[in-house]
C-alpha cells in the first residue's frame, strides 16, 4: 500500500509540474500571469478530440496540430489583447481570466459536456513495479515531464532566444538596447507557455475525461504550485509539485479523493500567510546589492 502511494504520489507530482510549467514560463519571462491558462489546456484537449473523432486524423498528427493551435491561440491572445494592458497586473489578470472564461463557457455552450470526450492513451497496458501495478500512460507522463523540464532548461540556457528570454525577464530595458524585441519575446513566451499547457493536457487527460471543469482545476493547480514554489522559479516549481503532489496523494489514499483539491487550496493559503513570495521567491534577495 505505502509503496503504491509513494509511486502514485510521484506520478501526481510530475502531473502538477507539467501543468504548472507553462504558466510559470510565461510569467517568468513576460511577467504576465496568464489566467486563460486552464482554458488553453482544455482547448488543446478538445481540439485533439475533434481532429481525432470528427476528422479521423491520425492521433499523433492530431496531437501535434492541437498543440500548435493552442500555441498560436496563446500568441494571438497576447498580441491582440494582453499586449495592450501589459504592465498593469490587475488588468492583465482580469483580461486573461475573462478570455479563459469565454473559451471554457463557449465549449459548454457548444455542448461539450458528457462522458464521451476522452482521449486515447498513447500506449495501452501496464507494468508492475514491485507489488504496484502502474499503467504505461502514467510512466509516459513521468518521462515526458522529465524530458520537458530538461528541454526547457537547455532552451533557456543555451539558445539565443532562450537567453534573450532570461535577459528580458531580468531587465527589460537593458535587453531592448541589446537588440532584443521585448514585445516579440513576450508573444513567444505566451505561445510557448500555451503550447506547454497543450502538451500537459494531451499527456495527462487520457487518464480521465476531457471536461470543462478540468480547465478550472488545471488553473487552480498551476496557481497552487506557482504560489507555493515562488513564481518564476523553476526549482521552486519542482519542489512545490512534489510537496503538493504527495500531500494530495496521501490525502486521497487515507482520507478520500474528493479532498485532493482542498490540499491545493490549503497550500495556497498557508504559503500566502507564511511566506507570500513562495518558498523560492527571490524578489528581495538581490535588490539590496544593486
Amino acid at each position: 500500500m505505502l509503496q503504491g502511494t509513494l509511486i502514485y504520489g510521484f506520478v501526481n507530482s510530475v502531473i502538477l509540474a507539467l501543468i504548472a510549467l507553462g504558466f510559470n514560463l510565461t510569467f517568468g519571462i513576460s511577467g504576465v500571469a496568464n489566467f486563460a491558462y486552464g482554458a488553453l489546456y482544455i482547448f488543446s484537449a478538445y481540439t485533439a478530440w475533434m481532429l481525432l473523432t470528427w476528422l479521423k486524423i491520425n492521433y499523433l498528427i492530431s496531437i501535434v496540430i492541437a498543440v500548435l493551435l493552442t500555441s498560436l491561440l496563446g500568441g494571438l491572445i497576447y498580441k491582440f489583447i494582453l499586449l495592450r494592458v501589459r504592465g498593469m497586473p490587475i488588468s492583465e489578470v482580469i483580461a486573461s481570466f475573462g478570455i479563459g472564461l469565454s473559451i471554457l463557457e463557449f465549449f459548454r455552450f457548444l455542448g461539450f459536456v458528457g462522458s464521451e470526450y476522452t482521449l486515447p492513451v498513447f500506449i495501452d497496458g501496464s507494468v508492475s513495479i514491485g507489488e504496484t501495478y502502474i499503467d504505461i500512460q502514467r510512466l509516459l507522463i513521468v518521462v515526458i515531464g522529465i524530458a520537458l523540464v530538461s528541454i526547457l532548461y537547455l532552451f533557456t540556457h543555451y539558445t539565443k532566444t532562450g537567453l534573450a528570454f532570461r535577459g528580458m525577464a531580468q531587465e527589460e530595458r537593458t535587453a531592448l538596447i541589446l537588440g532584443i524585441n521585448s514585445d516579440k519575446m513576450a508573444t513567444f513566451s505566451l505561445a510557448i507557455g500555451s503550447g506547454l499547457a497543450g502538451v500537459a493536457a494531451i499527456t495527462i487527460l487520457p487518464l480521465g475525461q476531457v471536461a470543462i471543469e478540468g480547465g478550472y482545476s488545471a488553473l487552480l493547480n498551476a496557481l497552487a504550485v506557482c504560489i507555493v514554489g515562488g513564481l518564476g522559479s523553476t526549482g521552486g516549481i519542482l519542489v512545490a509539485s512534489v510537496l503538493i503532489g504527495y500531500a494530495q496523494t496521501f490525502t486521497a489514499t487515507y482520507i478520500g479523493s474528493h479532498w485532493m483539491m482542498i490540499v491545493s487550496l490549503i497550500a495556497i493559503l498557508v504559503i500566502l500567510i507564511i511566506k507570500p513570495s513562495g518558498l523560492f521567491g527571490k524578489q528581495k534577495e538581490l535588490e539590496e546589492r544593486i
Binding site: 540556457h157 539565443k160 534573450a164 532570461r166 531580468q170 531587465e171 530595458r173 546589492r289 544593486i290
Partner: peptide, 26 residues
C-alpha cells in the same frame, strides 16, 4: 548603436558569462 545605461543595470541573476552571452543576441 549601443547604450550603456546609467547605474549599470546588468542582468543580476545571471552570472557574468551569461550576461555576455545574452548581450551577444545580435
Amino acid at each position: 548603436m549601443a547604450l550603456c545605461r546609467e547605474r549599470h543595470p546588468i542582468f543580476p541573476e545571471s552570472d557574468v558569462l551569461e550576461n555576455l552571452k545574452i548581450a551577444g543576441y545580435l
